[in-house]
Computed example of a mutant assay.
Amino acid sequence: MARLVVPTKGQRFHQISQPVNGWLKSFGAGDGLITLFLRHTSASLTIQENTDPDVQADIIDALDRLAPETVGYRHHMEGADDMPAHIKTLLTGVNLQIPVIGGEMDLGTWQALYLVEHRDGLHQRTVTLHYLGT
């Protein structure tokens, strides 16, 4: 097991495929399964398009339409972006399981692993990594 710390700034996608594959290589992972768990309630993990950045921008826009800041939520102690961030995390999730083949995540050609920040400010997000396999 390990923890990956990802500094974030603003609502956007942060690709974490390389550091996760690097961790798998660091101990000689073979074939198995990696579980990733994000230890936060206002950011999420996803596998998504890795070539056209418009896909990421469109997803951010869609999530903003689903959970706008202007609704007047009861929970607002941490700012207008906090409750919408919790809703976006509920919709997108905080854990993933990915097959590992030959020591690398078995992602498709157009896929990458991302931490999605749903808050506006600076944050340090922590992803717990767990590998089970040969």
Rank of each mutant, 00 (worst) to 15 (best):
L113T: 14
M83R: 00
V116P: 03
T41Y: 00
V94H: 15
Q56A: 11
H86R: 13
P7W: 13
A2T: 06
V100E: 04
T51E: 14
M77W: 11
P53A: 12
M83C: 00
H86E: 09
I101F: 12
A43Y: 01
P7R: 09
Q124V: 07
T126W: 01
L24V: 03
L4F: 07
G108A: 10
I34G: 03
S17G: 12
A80V: 15
Q97M: 10
T70Q: 11
V5R: 15
R39T: 11
A43H: 05
I87W: 08
H123E: 12
K88I: 04
G133V: 10
K9H: 13
G30F: 07
T134R: 15
A29M: 06
R39V: 02
Q111W: 09
L107T: 08
A85S: 10
G22W: 05
G108F: 06
P68I: 12
G108S: 11
L38H: 02
S17F: 07
N95I: 04
S42P: 06
T92N: 13
T41R: 03
T8W: 07
L91P: 08
G22Y: 03
D64R: 15
R39E: 09
P53N: 08
S17C: 01
M1Y: 09
T35D: 10
A112G: 15
H75F: 04
T109G: 09
Q15C: 14
G22P: 02
G22K: 06
M83S: 00
D81C: 05
I34T: 08
E104I: 14
D81N: 03
W110G: 05
Q18Y: 10
A67R: 01
R39S: 10
V55W: 10
I98N: 07
G121N: 15
V20N: 07
Y114V: 01
G30S: 14
T8H: 04
M83L: 05
T51L: 12
H76N: 15
S17V: 11
I47A: 07
T128G: 15
A80S: 14
R3F: 14
D64Y: 12
H76D: 15
Y114G: 07
Y114M: 01
L107N: 02
D120P: 02
D31S: 11
E104P: 09
D64A: 11
G10N: 08
G28P: 01
H123A: 14
H75K: 11
Q15K: 14
V20W: 04
T8D: 03
H40E: 03
Q56D: 08
A85D: 01
Q18D: 15
G30M: 07
G32F: 05
L38R: 04
L33N: 12
D120S: 04
L33V: 09
M1W: 07
H130D: 12
T70F: 00
